[in-house]
Structures are given as structure tokens and as C-alpha cells.
Write a protein that binds this DNA or RNA. Structure first.
Lengths: 249, 249
DNA sequence: ACCTGAACACCGTTCAAGT
DNA sequence: ACCTGAACACCGTTCAAGT
């Protein structure tokens, strides 16, 4: 955890010359740790100041001495989750492979605490902190691809947006069905079904071949599209350079 | 609104032969309408059964006669928002333009009630209902592009995930800064900045040319990448077909 | 400095009672 | 059938008081 300071293992080390009177003293880190454990185990709705205090064996009001309120508590939680992780930064392979690897790492980071994903994605500041963890190798890869600064920024945002949307789908629908599969189509009456002939045909075809939804495959398929698309933009940029060379010569 | 039945304009039409005693009678639709108005005006946190009852001039418990609880209320709200809209379905232009147009329409649908976006995206069932509203033209376009059923499904999901992630960013950060802009980079100390040289260079370059973040441009740039990527998959599919023809001949 | 108890103004929901 | 009042078990947070 260790949100603010680093190099302090836990609450077990007593302060020099001043042994805690009742054993462990309350601290921001101890609070965040207990809160995260509670959220992971029972969901974000189970997190209340009073319940958290009970878990810590402390008066509810004591918590307010270390965090200013519940909103700040959740913000601290989200920040801690994104700050604690130092994901490995890919630095070898083609730029395509580095983009893919960064997206995989980022997905794992966002998914690390499923019950916190919603609060996490709703917190713009936290998302910035999370993105900066993995953004440098993405930008380096996009730079290697030959994109302009503006297009590189847009491409990096698009990859991040895809990961956010994908993880949201994963945690909202952990069973892993197709968003719109045979069940939903069959629920619609004949009138409805007649209005979506292509979907009906495609999903019937998927059902025939016994295709099961697979989040890993779906994520990789999304990366296929994104990387292919970025390749296209890079080709445009090269063509643009060539045009300008032609004009100059 | 009119979640279940259609063709009933409001609460003003009294039932035949039975005039309401105290004027307007409570109904599921009236409840959802008031709840949506409250959420739009004051945010999702302002929505409480007691507050809603007060807005309706009714006892809090009366609401429970029409919806089973608060969770069901929010689910009903989300369902209503996605069901009420019959977005225009693009059916002319290239398949690329139809995919883009569908994504734009879907973005507008998801964004229609910003304070509800989080609840909306967290509700897998609601998202399915929303997607089915705009999915047919997407699937038709992807079919025209020549994608296999499985790849078409993955591509449609990827477009949806991108829209979800994009809108989430929009509502979480409505001011419209870069997720990771000069501010965040300058907040980091020299040690940090040295670790993200490419990002630093790219954002300095953007700042020099006075680039402002623009959600519309960013969304279109995302669509550029997605459509380009799908074009690449379609080219693969054609090449695969050609290969098989070669083998067969 | 750090913690606490009591209190305030809210919650969602159950249940038995009204008409 | 539809609505209500009182009650229960919770909330987040303020404030004055303890050590």
C-alpha cells in the first residue's frame, strides 16, 4: 500500500522510543489497507465508515483524523491501487507488440480489484495516475511507428478507452456471455427479430459452430483492430511525408 | 418515458369513468419520470426513496408498491433511458461510414443522461438492451465488409467498448483536458520526468503548437483507428479466401 | 495530538394497519 | 388495491469533551 511514503513495511515497527500503548496505532495506511480488504471481500457497498471502524476495532470518528471523509477514503483507495503497482514496461519487440503488451498490462492493473473498478474509472485523477504508469512505452512505440504528436496522443487515448470499456464489460458481466447473444435475440419477439436479420444470422452461425465467449480472445481481437488501425495511420503519415518530399523536390 | 406500454402521453388523461380522487395517481412511469428528473438535476447521489417520495408528494412507502426497491428503481431508470430512444439507423454510405455513424449515435445515446452513465455501464443487462438498439446496422456493415461471424462479433464488441470507455472519460472529466497532459507531467518531479522522455517530448510539442483537447476530434480519431483496423481484418479475410482458392485449384 | 460519546440529520426497508 | 405511520437497523458527519 504505502500511499505517501515508501519503505515502511507495515504497522508492526514501533516508533523509536515511544512504544504504542494499546499495541497498534491508527494510521492512514492501516485504514486504507483495511478498507481495500473490505471492498475486495464484500464489495464497495459494504464499505461504510462505521463498518470499517468496527473492522479496525476503533471508534468511527477516529478515522476522520486520518482521512477527511468517505469520498477522500475512496479516492485514497483508488490512488493507492494505481500507485502501488509498478507494472513491467515492455521495451523490446516491434512497436506493435509493445502496444499490445502495454494494453495487457494496463488491463491487469485496472482489473486488479474488480469491486473497485467503477470507482476507479469514475475518478479522472486516478485514471491519469494509472495511465501514466504504462503510458511511456505506449508513446515510445507510437513514436517509433512514426505518428505525429497529436495522432499519437489520440491513439494512446483510444487504447486506454478500449481497455476501460473492456474491463467495465468484464466486471459488469463476469459470466462472460456475448453482450447480445442468442438469449437476448430469442427474448425478442418475431417482430423484433425481423428487424435485426444480420445479427440473427451471425449469432445463429456462432451458435452452430459452438463458439463460446472468451474474454482473452475478445481482448486480443480488440488489440488486433487497434494495432491494425494505428498501422494504417502510420502508413498515412509516411505517405504524407512522401508527398511533401515530392512537392519540395 | 413509457417503459412498458406505449402511446400514453402522460398522467393527465384520467381513467375512463373513474376520475382520480386526489388528482393524479401514482404509477411506475410517474415514479421513473420523477427519478430521472432528480438524477439529471442533482446527480445519482441525490436519488433516495425518501427524497423521491417528497418530490412526488407521496409517502416514501407508496413507491414500493410500484417498484420493488431502490436497485430496481435504478435498473428501471437505466432500462427506460435505453428503451425510450429509437436512434436513427444509418443504412446508406460505405460500410465504414455506417460503422462510424452508428458509433456516433451510440455515443449520444449513452451520454444522454450524464449522471446516469456510471449506473448504466455497470448494468450488463441494460447495456445489452442499448447495444441492440444500434447493433443491427453495425453487424450489417461488418457483414458487408466480409468479416466472419466471430470476427464481426469481436469487432462490434470492440466498437462498443471504445464508446463506453470514451463516454466514461467524458463524464468523469467533463472539462476536457488530456488524460495525461502537461499539468500532470509538470507535477511529477525531475526524477519522474526523466523516466517518461517520449511523453514529455510529445506533450511539449502539443503545447508548443497550442493544441487543445477536443472530445469531438478525439472521438473521430478513435473511429479512424477502429475503422482502419477493421479494414485490415477484412483484407485478411479476403486474402484467406484467396489462399483457400489457390489451394483448392 | 489523538481518540471518543453523544447527537443530528439523514438512509432503505419491514410490517401491521388503515381506507 | 392502494396507500400510510411507526419502527428498525443502519448511514456520514459535527461538535464538544476527554486523555
Amino acid at each position: 500500500m504505502n500511499v505517501r511514503r515508501v519503505g515502511q513495511t507495515g504497522g508492526s515497527r514501533r516508533r523509536a522510543g515511544r512504544p504504542g500503548p494499546g499495541r497498534k496505532t491508527l494510521s492512514r495506511d492501516r485504514i486504507l489497507e483495511a478498507a481495500l480488504r473490505l471492498v475486495d471481500a464484500e464489495g464497495i457497498d459494504a464499505l461504510s465508515m462505521r463498518r470499517l471502524a468496527a473492522d479496525l476495532g476503533v471508534n468511527p470518528m477516529s478515522i476522520y483524523h486520518h482521512v477527511s471523509g468517505k469520498d477522500a477514503l475512496i479516492a485514497g483507495l483508488v490512488e493507492a491501487v494505481f500507485s502501488e503497482a509498478r507494472p513491467p514496461t515492455p521495451d523490446e519487440g516491434t512497436w506493435q507488440e509493445r502496444v499490445r503488451q502495454s494494453a495487457r498490462v494496463y488491463r491487469r492493473l485496472v482489473r486488479a480489484h474488480p469491486n473497485l473498478v467503477l470507482a476507479l474509472l469514475a475518478d479522472a485523477a486516478a485514471v491519469s495516475v494509472g495511465i501514466i504508469q504504462i503510458a511511456e512505452p505506449v508513446y515510445a512505440a507510437l513514436d517509433d511507428a512514426g505518428l505525429s504528436p497529436l495522432i499519437a496522443a489520440h491513439a494512446a487515448d483510444t487504447v486506454a478507452d478500449f481497455v476501460h470499456g473492456f474491463v467495465l464489460g468484464e466486471v459488469a458481466n463476469p459470466s462472460g456471455q456475448w453482450d447480445i447473444g442468442p438469449e437476448l435475440l430469442s427474448r425478442t419477439d418475431g417482430h423484433q427479430a425481423a428487424r435485426v436479420p444480420t445479427m440473427r444470422r451471425i449469432f445463429e452461425s456462432l451458435a452452430e459452430q459452438g463458439a463460446q465467449y472468451d474474454y482473452e480472445a475478445a481482448f486480443e481481437a480488440g488489440l488486433d483492430i487497434l494495432v491494425r488501425g494505428i498501422e494504417g495511420l502510420a502508413a498515412d503519415a509516411r505517405a504524407g511525408d512522401a508527398d511533401r518530399s515530392d512537392l519540395a523536390s
